[in-house]
């Protein structure tokens, strides 16, 4: 197991891999943008570090929007404004003075569609470190290898590092994108329906990967797939129409929800 720990040490900023990843405190978060005035309303969540938190809810309930608040990707939308606060390890994420690019290096993100850059596998993974100022080839090689190993892709691609990433299978592409996110050594990983475009076997591999990664990262995953949420997450938040309906441990949510709406959703009455 110390092999894994070494890997994790190489892929995070923490010198002691057993030290827990930081949690996220969401307080009174509301978000509006012109087309959707009540995208998110008064969200309060306390996301513990080193665990997987799933966000579930019907389409258009604001799950992805919430996720995109954690690394301020919503900034790219026109006319979007926040209120409330998100505290990550003492840093107020939503503070306008917050250095957004630095924040995004602490909070990695994996998207619904695998989006490898149309360049070589190596360059894809090295992209983040390069932008972060890593120039030395040896250092880059190390980062790329450890990220790929951690994403369980190394054995499959180690002989074709210079091939264009877009020739990989979708499942491989998604793991490559995870490796690319890991390579900048974030503390938090955001996953926006990471397996929704994948076949069942690839989905399984991603879920296994999530399980392994949670030792070293705080993971927030948005998913449409209830079974997936039940399988991979420790805590689950149920969102509806921009509000948190219920937030509790996954076991509680799936076996004994406090709210009627949660139960209806989970049992498939709507959504």
């Amino acid at each position: 197991m110390d092999h894994r720990e070494a890997l994790i040490a190489a892929s995070t900023n923490r010198s002691n891999p057993s030290e827990a990843a930081p949690g996220i405190e969401v307080k009174g978060l509301s978000l509006t943008y012109p087309e959707e005035p009540n995208a998110l309303t008064d969200i309060n969540l306390s996301i513990p570090g080193g665990e997987v938190t799933a966000v579930i809810g019907p389409s258009g309930c604001g799950k992805s929007t919430l996720l995109r608040c954690f690394n301020r990707m919503n900034d790219m939308l026109e006319g979007c404004s926040y209120s409330g606060s998100i505290i990550l390890n003492g840093l107020d994420v939503l503070d306008p003075a917050t250095d957004v690019t630095a924040l995004r290096r602490r909070v990695g993100m994996v998207f619904q569609q695998p989006n490898p850059f149309p360049m070589s596998i190596y360059e894809n993974v090295a992209y983040g470190p390069r932008i972060g100022g890593v120039r030395r080839r040896r250092e880059l090689d190390e980062v790329v290898e450890s990220a790929l190993r951690l994403a369980a892709l190394w054995d499959e691609v180690k002989d074709q590092m210079n091939r264009n990433a877009i020739v990989l299978s979708l499942g491989q592409q998604q793991r490559l994108v995870i490796a690319r996110a890991i390579a900048v050594r974030p503390e938090v990983l955001l996953m926006d329906e990471p397996a929704s475009s994948l076949d069942p076997i690839s989905t399984l591999r991603i879920e296994e990967l999530i399980y392994e990664l949670k030792q070293s990262y705080t993971i927030v995953i948005v998913t449409h797939n209830m079974q997936q949420a039940a399988r991979v997450s420790d805590r689950t938040a149920f969102l509806n129409q921009g509000r948190v309906v219920e937030y509790d441990s996954t076991d509680k949510i799936f076996t004994n929800p406090a709210e009627r709406a949660t139960e209806d959703y989970i049992t498939g009455r709507y959504g």
């Binding site: 995004r104 990695g108 850059f117 360049m119 992209y127 690319r180």
Partner: peptide, 27 residues
Amino acid sequence: LPLALREGSRALGATRSETIFRVVLPA
């Protein structure tokens, strides 16, 4: 070019011009 390409780059902490020069223009 899909928006996801740009988002992927921005999510890794690249600035807009870095995204343009390293991802968008080459593609």
